[in-house]
Amino acid sequence: SNGDASPTLTLAEHDHLAQIICKSHLETCQYLREELQEMSWQSFLQEEVEKYQNKPQEAMWQLCAVKITDAVQYVVEFAKRIDGFMDLCQNDQIVLLKAGSLEVIFVRMCRVFDSQNNTVYFDGKFASPDVFKSLGCDDLISSVFDFGQSICSLQLTEEEIALFSAFVLLSADRSWLREKLQVEKLQRKTESALQHILQKNHRDDGVLEKLRCKASALRALCGLHSEKLAAFRTVYPDAVRTLFPPLYKELFAA
């Protein structure tokens, strides 16, 4: 990288960047804080769990694909509001969203994850891993829940979630980027603002390193999702073609 890719921001600039990213995050969160507070954090009853478990595999995959697609649209809006994202060339905007939107969804999941009961908000109530049994990919589901537990244990504030999401989305090492340096510059600015906020919140020195580890865990998780989708598609090519949302196919099955 050159000097241009190592921005030095003043404290006020860090605060300003953090504020903008946090505002973008709050404006584009699927569930607002107030809504989350009103949620009764009610878990599915046993008969409801069984209803999901008895669904045909392709119907449960379709339901999850629809939920992921809904969440992706909010992530696209988040990306559009990040300072500098829309100044990137369109190829790079698409590359970053294709590679990073699901990762951001997994980061955002900590807002709707009940770590005490090991449940996550899904389809109106809180679901334990066994709700997803009919998907036929227990290892992916347990990895997602493990990730939920570990990110919840960091007890991130909304501002920290926002900056970490932007940091993940602006990963400059994604394949097929055309203007890598531009992305790198944005990511460094974001990382620097994240570091500033962590210090301001009196976080331990190790938190940033833990978040870097989470970023690689996210890649592994999304890699596993792609693997499972490919395997499912081999068995049910028509289900993917006819039942899955077009945006999901564009992002994950193209």
């Binding site: 404006e27 584009t28 649209q73 909010y74 696209v76 809006e77 559009k80 829309m86 369109q90 905007q93 698409i94 969203l97 294709k98 077009p246 945006l247 564009e250 992002l251 193209a254």
Partner: peptide, 20 residues
């Protein structure tokens, strides 16, 4: 663009689903 036409459209849209 053709391969990612929905994503392309979402990026071009000035109205967000959140605002809608």
């Amino acid at each position: 663009k053709e391969k990612h036409k929905i994503l392309h459209r979402l990026l071009q849209n000035s109205t967000s689903p959140v605002e809608l």
